[in-house]
Design a protein around this nucleic acid. Structure first.
Lengths: 200, 200, 200, 200
DNA sequence: GATGAATGAGGCTTCATTCAT
DNA sequence: CATGAATGAAGCCTCATTCAT
């Protein structure tokens, strides 16, 4: 990645913004090129086609997310604190780079089947298993209930996170102020860690 | 809907299958018509355009899902049993009518702002608020923790459900046999109701 | 072919003219559509793509030529008279339908490799073997020298014919007047036949 | 041409191979450059554009062919022996440098009027007239039948030669072994000469 | 001389939509 | 109601050519 052409990077940045804005199918390569400030043809100099560009965008954004999750996993705190950290981080990213999150959330499931079977799907499963590992860590430490299958737990955590973020993106759950964001984080963490039921 | 032309119905059925298979953007009106066994001019006889067809598909599928959820809400059992019932029902539908679930999951609220501010989004929010009501019911009954915002809780529940179903569709979580499906249901219910944390 | 849509035919006719005028690579589908007086998209309603259209043009033109050659073969006269008839016919066609001949001569060899290996090549070999059969007929009748391999003889005949026609198309060999055409026919026949004829 | 840059030569060599392989329109400048092992900007350093490159390729290949034909014309033997020599030489070249022959055969004079009224066509007519001269020589010497128009005769000879070579390239006429090649030569010569020869 | 990034017009192809029958 | 031929705008992609280094 060192010495990566600056314009290639500009195209990827632009693609994130444009995909987020209009969706994969709603935008044209011309939009990406214009947004990036480069000539139309240059997009095809760096990427095989529109699909490959989307693929690359996914790859990079997920890589960033996964790297952060891995860092949290290696970091300090109990297992449940670390899992909470993942949720908090995700919400923070939503406020920092909403476009990136939108692409990840909105376009992930919408790419053609072929792609889904390819790299993107692999990346998705990587994320799932990484979180599953964190859950298994917690089970070994006795912090996480042993009856939960780590993979189902990971799907539950990420799914709850995703739809909560979507609700925030759509405005159904308020997230305008600092305080609202903080409250949303706590809610999600509470849901994931403790569930809905009151009694126990 | 009484006396609804048989071919109109055939087109809607076909649309569910085709959208599920290839996605909204990945299929052509011709695909729907072929699958339905009608001429494709006929699609335009019954539906204003492609978008309207998708809307109608959503509307019908959601109506079915919402009706079931409402029935569960009105039915017997404690609040947490009823919320569990929603989860169980969703997993059952996945096995009965996977195509319908795929369409709902993949094409749902996940379309960029501009395009679909319309009916679909409204329908999505209906579902969210219906579940939120169930949670509020539980809070009033003292069964559900009061700190949880019902809307965030609903988003968490549906999100966890959705990604778990997706994992089942993709095969990451096994759901081939009757027993596997039953186990998956229990896992999801446990996650949603009790969360991940062991100690309390 | 009965009940063949009139516009499909118009497109094929137009394609012959346009390919002849500008060559396969030099013309656009838009040119064909305009020449045919139909909408752009209709070309794609009837033909898979540009290549398939060319393929079809070849097929039809060759079919006409081959049918005529077969008729000549079945008709009266000695073998050498029939072979002469093929040459005369070809020159006549050049004057009647120069566009068709131009396409056959100029584009035959210029299509992408893939096609060449396909139907077009088959058609070419059909023509070669049909003429070879006529030569073999003549050998059995003692009219054509037995040392000549029929296939090489056919290649020689058709090649001589083709380049002579090309020379006429290009104007290097005059073919403006009735008399010039007649003289050219005699020349070609003389060249071809006296090379094949056994007696001397 | 002395001191001609080595890379310029590499580009020309590569162009012959690539044009032969995929045809003029079927290849990109990048293909030529890659085949030549140079950067593709360099092609534009040495040649004005793609068309000019093709022209140059023709010019060189024809120059070689024409030089050989001229040498044969100046050489020993009767007129018919010399014409036979031209045929034999052409077949030999096919085996030695099939790519060059393919380019000459496939891309030669066969381009629509407008595009290439230029050098290439002139070169083609040069060849035609050169062979026509050899025929006229033979007529003056009484070896070749006087009724044949030398230009038509030349077109016949070259056409017969071309299509026979094409048939060999395609494998319709066998030319794998030394003996098959020799037999093919004899056949072509017999076809061509006995059509031209006065005596019988 | 040599490189390859950058440009952008051109053209094929798709497909939602309309319309005559 | 039903059909499918007809339309044409939209957009992806290619690739010859230029240009800064």
């Amino acid at each position: 990645m060192l010495g990566e052409p600056e314009k290639r990077r500009a195209i990827l940045h632009a693609a994130v913004r444009v995909f987020a804005e209009k969706g994969y199918h709603g935008c044209r390569i011309a939009d990406v090129a214009r947004q990036a400030g480069v000539a139309y043809g240059l997009v095809y100099h760096y990427f095989r086609n529109k699909e490959a560009l989307l693929e690359k965008v996914f790859e990079e954004q997920w890589a960033i997310f996964l790297a952060a999750v891995r860092a949290i996993r290696e970091g300090p705190g109990s297992s449940s604190e670390r899992l909470a950290g993942v949720c908090r981080f995700a919400v923070d990213v939503l406020k920092t780079a909403p476009a990136a999150v939108r692409v990840l959330l909105l376009e992930m499931a919408r790419t053609p089947n072929v792609v889904r079977a390819g790299h993107t799907r692999q990346t998705f499963e990587d994320a799932l298993h990484l979180v599953a590992e964190m859950i298994a860590d917690g089970q070994r430490a006795g912090e996480i209930r042993r009856e939960i299958d780590p993979v189902v737990g990971a799907a539950g955590l990420l799914g709850a996170l995703e739809l909560s973020l979507t609700a925030m993106v759509l405005g159904t759950v308020p997230s305008g102020t600092e305080a609202e964001v903080e409250r949303a984080k706590q809610q999600v963490v509470a849901f994931v860690l403790q569930g809905l039921r009151a009694d126990r």
